[in-house]
Amino acid sequence: MTNQTTKADAPAQGRLLDATGKIWAVLVDGLAAAGTFMILVLMMIICADILARNLMGASLPLVSELGALLLVMIVSLQLATTVRADRLARTEIFFTGFRAARPRAGAGLSGVFNLVGAAVVGGIAWSTVRILGKDWASGEYIGVTGIATFPTWPFRALILLGMTIAAIQFLVLAARDFNLALTTKDKT
């Protein structure tokens, strides 16, 4: 590839990256919105259960098991946006001062943290593939045969999706950090 073509492609590549970035943002926000909506669903099904129990004398089936699974959904679907918003708890004793004093090394350190994040959350996603496969194969369900049941695999699939997106979000942040580390200079 010659220099010329690289130059000519650069703006197009930029636009492409831009578009990818937008699609990515929509994906992360969309998952988060789904997770957010589930908080409302959670509130509603529990209140419906309270009503049913007190008015009709019978509790709704599956509520507690569904509530438990919905909660795992909320966490996995919103993890990516929480990561992007830098809302995971951390200490600032060392990190904030270090970043201010040594921007380049600070960005590098932040990049390392984000890589580790990508690795562990990616590990969760990886091992969820197997759990999804097993639940699918054995027809794992919540509830009681003869009363009401619901398969668990759709939930596992959503956990897998959320964790995968969160792992990639960590990678995106790490790339940004390392880029920053290469392009900025520490004050010396």
Binding site: R53, A58, S59, P61, V144, G146, I147
Partner: peptide, 14 residues
């Protein structure tokens, strides 16, 4: 809950 089927009693899960 299955053991109450046919008895006319309602099963309350818990």
């Amino acid at each position: 809950g299955n053991w109450l089927r046919g008895t006319g009693a309602n099963a309350v899960d818990g």
